[in-house]
Nucleic acid binder design. Structure first.
Lengths: 107, 107
DNA sequence: ATTTGATATTGCAATATTACGATGATATAT
DNA sequence: ATATATCATCGTAATATTGCAATATCAAAT
């Protein structure tokens, strides 16, 4: 085994799990927080800020990119990206919905 | 490697990542949603509801328990647990804080 | 055209996760 | 006491994740 049985779960559950998975690493939390606090698009400096090797940062960025949290240009040297705020708000809403939907009558 | 370099990150980042990790599996999302919607504490039926084997469900429940999301008795047959609502609210607040803290002046 | 500066990709080793069968433990019913 | 029902633990196989060195790529400057 080792692979999740995604097919037995609903799309909603799989989607939220996928988002959570991206957030399930302190480096990616740190990267997201750093980018989200910038005034402008980011150029490099993440390797210095986070403290992991360049290939590792690159991989983490890719995971973040996969769920649509980054926007900008990713071409060669003119790369310049920042948080996709629309997507950011969507994720926030997903978590909000999940946590809001609780039966307060229990216990 | 294979292990996260948790020591180079802040407690806050590690904590949020740990919580996200628990939510990073559709089975655990489904389990949490199911329990959180119940009127009463849960007794069994999770194996039927989710569709994974009993040992697997047991493992997932343990992960959820580790971050304090369940309360109740876990002794033999008198087991009876439900969502720890205080903790639930804490986690909700953690995600809310993370997503709220974004610089809207960028792009 | 070559160098430079920066990110991406590949390949690999170490570790973690997911899943389940077999087994163990524990409480209740018979 | 024995059987039954239910959850926990162990052991193991399959797969995924993390991290980095080496290397490739790519755009701009020289």
């Amino acid at each position: 085994m080792g692979a999740s049985k995604t097919h037995i779960f609903s799309t909603t559950h799989n989607e939220l799990a996928k988002i959570a998975k991206v957030m399930a690493h302190p480096a990616r939390i740190a990267i997201l927080e750093y980018i989200s606090k910038q005034d402008n698009c980011i150029c490099n400096d993440l390797v210095d800020v986070i403290g992991l090797s360049q290939p590792t940062i690159s991989q983490h960025l890719n995971e973040i990119k996969k769920i649509g949290l980054l926007k900008g240009t990713f071409e060669g040297k003119n790369l310049c990206y920042c948080i996709n705020q629309e997507r950011w708000d969507e994720l926030q809403e997903s978590f909000h919905l999940f946590f809001s939907n609780i039966n307060r009558n229990c216990c």
